[in-house]
Amino acid sequence: SHLLVAEPEKIYAMPDPSLPEGDIKALTTLCDLADRELVVIIGWAKHIPGFSSLSLGDQMSLLQSAWMEILILSVVFRSLPYEDELVYAEDYVMDEGHSRLTGLLDLYGSILHLVRRYKKLKVEKEEFVTLKAIALTNSDSMHIEDVEAVQKLQDSLHEALQEYEGGEHQEDPQRAGKLLMTLPLLRQTAAKAVQHFYSIKVQGKVPMHKLFLEMLEAKV
């Protein structure tokens, strides 16, 4: 219930009407959206019970490792009611054609693969918010100072998931495991996304805000 309350408000891409239509505009819109969502994610993390008790260094390490997984998981959950479309924001939905034009076809395919996994599972909001928090604490950062404290936080989130499934999905004792087994595909997809946006950064044609750049650099 804490995680449901902590869930951020809807986000809007609001593409700049002064920019000419094209791939640069689409990528600029997505990078701006990601930058604003990062601010929201940092605020969200603080509402995960126990997160703020970690050292500042460990809070930073977890977010630096997991931010793209959290961003993608949010896109995936927003896209569940749609057919072959990715809901990057309430006002920014991309289909296959649009993704191809912006050079994001590979990423579109990978994220859609995840969407299909969660659709098949009929993932619920309670499960999604818990999975997001688990992804943050399971980020396998190599820079954690207090491994035990992070493990304790992860255990409490894992316990919340198991408790929820024990109550709501007694018909499928494997359900918590099935949900956790989607995390490798999420990790793989996030790695691809980071690589892609890093190469866009190197090309230097798309303006990027400072926080997005900072987080992108922390991943490479």
Partner: peptide
């Protein structure tokens, strides 16, 4: 950590 100053600042803000 100096390189990650925005993240650091946002985590310290008590919002």
């Amino acid at each position: 950590k100096e390189k990650h100053k925005i993240l650091h600042r946002l985590l310290q803000n008590s919002t």
